[in-house]
Amino acid sequence: MQSLAEQACEGICLSAIQLNRIALALDELFANIHKHGYAGKGGDIDCAAKWTGMEGKPCLLEIRLRDFAPTIEDIKACKGVDPETLKEHPVAGGLGMHLIYAITESFEHTPLEDGNQWRLTFNLEKEKDETS
């Protein structure tokens, strides 16, 4: 997943922290699709990345994933664990979704007739401010 993130960001100057965030969000989503969508049996995932620029500088990365697993009608129930409750009730589940929401600028799911589409965006300008 790190190499996929590096490929999506080829030619773009990013910090190790920015690259790590992108790789981690992709890693978590791929793992969830594999585990829950394809029930660990494997399946196809299409992936596309697009950069949107501002004043000629790429700053917003959009990554779309498309799987052919059973359609999920509503992912609102999969919001992930709340760290506030984790201290009193340490549970290991739901951390992946929590990380995806924490890392991305936006995270959207669209149910399709024969699968699911996932759209993640990363605001690299904002992240640059946070990581500098």
């Binding site: 790590n20 981690l24 984790l86 201290k87 549970v91 290991a92 951390l95 992946g96 990380l99």
Partner: peptide, 20 residues
């Protein structure tokens, strides 16, 4: 450790469970 995903964090959460 340069990279840790949620499965790694989940193992550490088990440490929290032990602590509690």
């Amino acid at each position: 450790v340069e990279f840790m995903d949620s499965s790694g964090i989940a193992v550490l959460v088990e440490g929290l469970q032990w602590s509690k």
